[in-house]
Design a protein around this nucleic acid. Sequence first.
DNA 1: CTTTTTGTTTGTTTAGCTGCAAAGTTCCCG
DNA 2: CGGGAACTTTGCAGCTAAACAAACAAAAAG
Lengths: 229, 229
Amino acid sequence: MLDVALISHLPNFADFSRSELEIFIRQSKAKRVEKNASFFSEGEAANSFYMLLDGYIRVVRISASGEQIIVRYITSHELFGIASAIGRETYPANAVAAIDSVALAWPMALWDDTVRRFPSFAKAANSTLGNRLMDVQDRVIELATEQVEHRVAAALLKLLEQAGKETDEGILIDIPLTRQDVSDMSGTTLYTVSRLLSGWEQSGLVKSSRKRVTVTDKIKLTSLCNRQE
Amino acid sequence: MLDVALISHLPNFADFSRSELEIFIRQSKAKRVEKNASFFSEGEAANSFYMLLDGYIRVVRISASGEQIIVRYITSHELFGIASAIGRETYPANAVAAIDSVALAWPMALWDDTVRRFPSFAKAANSTLGNRLMDVQDRVIELATEQVEHRVAAALLKLLEQAGKETDEGILIDIPLTRQDVSDMSGTTLYTVSRLLSGWEQSGLVKSSRKRVTVTDKIKLTSLCNRQE
DNA sequence: CTTTTTGTTTGTTTAGCTGCAAAGTTCCCG
DNA sequence: CGGGAACTTTGCAGCTAAACAAACAAAAAG
């Protein structure tokens, strides 16, 4: 059983009493999902909402022409699969574990009641939605106005924030990440990503190997994103 | 004074009684904004939330490099400027009137109370957010995977749904719309849009003139969006 | 240890767009 | 009604990044 103390400090649960939170947690079921398996798929009936305890989740959609797009990553303690919050009865995307992951799952039937009784929870859910909306808008702007180099750099920096881990060589992106994954995030091809990474490696911005990227010069990488004119 | 009957049927207000709705409306102030003027700007303190009564609004953001992106259009009876719903204290974008427009404005201080007392209103706000999130995601996918021709066609079709008006020549997009506007929606340049429209005009898909586009063959235009491989 | 699978790099070619310039149109305003 | 502003079209030059192919490297499977 999960230790309530580990999550009681989260803003999601700010106005749950200790016992309320315990009851709430007890209503959930831990769901463990292996790397590359899904918590749920696009179009599926939204029977549960989730909070990620450990791991990383790729939110993926498939375009009309069959190409895969990574919409975002979910990190620990984020709510996800909250279709109800926006009045939907099916999940709008696929949630694929990037590494072995564990989440708590609540029956969707509890949503309305939970939101009504716990304003902090409702607020957290709404600001989660708001942040996602802003993020996605930022990506639209990026895709519409910036060149590939900029976009790939931005994708790496975002990953760095979400999953960066200090090492002696620099900051490692602690998710197994293929060139293809990066290109799926930045709307380009794995070839271009490979070329960019090679180039950056030569100029000492990053180190990369199979499924791993370490950023050695965050400053310079950031500056690629702010290039004016 | 606005006739309450005109809007009482909207889902937003499903569980307002007649008198509650009257009171609610009375708390608002009609705001009239001329073409090309703004209801509010990005970063401004979010003092009001709005419902559009008449007109069209362009939701615009400016990229880091100064380029303008049209994030979406707001049409009649939509809520907008609902920053509070996502826990923000400033507006996240500019709301510019595409034509002379009128909206009701409520003081943001009323938000929490309104949402709490009227679940239908809260639900409407949330599904508005949800739809926007989905829309923006769709645009990300489009920008990341589809070619310009496809994207411009999709932009026109979206406008057609929002502001289409039957005429004897076809369906007119009833908003003054420059080539630049269309390119700002589809992440390309006004030159390319101009070329595409010329081409489509030759093959009888559209008719266009200064600031006007009429779609004469919606079927074929739609098929440009579904082009496989 | 060998084979297969999966991921990465790199060369070459080329389509698709952008960017600029310049001319043509349409509209608006005094 | 005339002049200027705003919008549109078109030609051309140039370049970015996509697409394909092929070889290489690393990991997983047997």
